[in-house]
Design a protein around this nucleic acid. Structure first.
Lengths: 232, 232
DNA sequence: CGTAACCTTGATTAAGATCAATTCTCGTGG
DNA sequence: CCACGAGAATTGATCTTAATCAAGGTTACG
């Protein structure tokens, strides 16, 4: 792995070889196994991360122990930028902590850590990065907006919406087959419910001939019906 | 009202008189009465807004007609910046719409509309605004993060949390009196519940001698108990 | 081929939404 | 100054959804 990997990261896509090399030399590369914690929301903030390989879930834990997943992050996307930018305003305040917990979802999840100071240095010389950062944050805001909209509806709606959104990512035809990139447990947690309920709703959808479930594969048999459920 | 009003807006706090004048001359001032819609989430995007007087609620409406409030916006804060920044990346795409609905909560709510083109022009000459924008977006992200955490808990927890957060804003003592800046209906909608349930929980808190409610005034009688409820 | 992690199923319970009346509050006009 | 009426808030009875508790079943992997 070398500095060219950074070229895939939207934030850095306009940097030249030299700049990429310089940045790369100042980053930390870290590897995590499935289930390992990357940071807790109680830890002091060090910097933001980029996923290079594998996947990461960002989640909150409520006092009664239930976890709620906010995002899944996949290769070449960043996470935990919020404190970096909040810090910018209140210089020298170092008591910032991470806004949520994060855990690797796959074996050999490779991350790059970009420390606050490294990033600040870089932005000074490459202020156009700022605009990319803005658009990436805006995207996250829109995501959370729609996530809130989702979790205030009932579970079948949430699930139908999720299945359809996964379908949109794939090359969409009529009877499309999608493959869950996450465990059913994580899906339940992302949908703001629990394993048992997800299982029941999946079964219901299956009994109603909307989908067919086989392990992590879901075959969509009646997209119109799913659309109807998701939007009523 | 003149251009100096813009000085109160964090985003523009570092601009000089000249720049403020120039910006002000290119803005639209709009006034809304209580209950009037500022924009629907279906409308084509024009630009973002600054609240000068009054208050605004930002909300989503689910298909079954229930509204869910995401933010309340008060003087000198901005809203609806997200499409502006998404647009930046995909130049010339004009089909962006607003990410949610918005409505004036008070009579004579005064707003400034800053059209996308005006803002882009301005940023080109004042790139430091970019950093302010970043920190403002980061703040919103953190808000939504914690809002999601909140609405996945039960209603008494959500309410206790809200009351305590309102209390923190005021000059906090032991038995503090807070005044709701919003209607009970809006509070219910912000907490992701309905009027009846909010009413019942308020009564429960009152019966348990945690608070005393009189119209929009809430007297906190047992802050420790509220803290316990909010965090268990 | 055994065991742990993952997933499913059933019975029960609890939280809160819904439906249906009232009651309260406050601004307006007589 | 009082009476009216509309919107806001409350209360009660009922119903629905999904969480909880408790077993089983499946799958994957060493």
């Amino acid at each position: 792995m070398d500095s060219s990997i950074l070229k895939n990261v939207h934030l850095f896509s306009d940097l030249n070889e030299d700049e990429l090399d310089k940045l790369y030399s100042r980053c930390d590369i870290k590897t995590f196994n499935k289930g390992e914690i990357i940071f807790f929301d109680t830890e002091p903030y060090q910097g933001f991360y980029i996923v290079i390989e594998g996947g990461v879930k960002i989640f909150k834990i409520s006092k009664d122990g239930r976890e709620h997943i906010l995002y899944f992050i996949y290769p070449f996307n960043t996470f935990a930028e919020v404190p970096l930018l909040e810090q910018y305003e209140k210089i020298k305040k170092d008591e910032f902590s991470y806004p949520a917990n994060s855990m690797a979802m796959e074996e050999n999840t490779k991350l790059i850590l970009i420390r606050s100071s490294v990033f600040y240095n870089f932005v000074e010389k490459n202020s156009h990065i700022c605009f990319k950062m803005l658009s990436s944050l805006a995207k996250k805001l829109r995501h959370l907006n729609s996530h809130i909209e989702t979790i205030t509806q009932d579970v079948p709606k949430r699930l139908a919406k999720y299945i359809l959104s996964e379908d949109k990512k794939s090359t969409a035809k009529q009877n499309s087959l999608i493959e869950l990139s996450i465990s059913k447990h994580d899906l339940a947690s992302y949908l703001g419910t629990i394993d048992e309920t997800l299982s029941r709703v999946l079964k219901k959808f299956q009994d109603d001939k909307l989908i067919e479930v086989k392990g992590k594969k879901i075959l969509i048999k009646d997209k119109q019906a799913l659309i109807k459920i998701s939007s009523f």
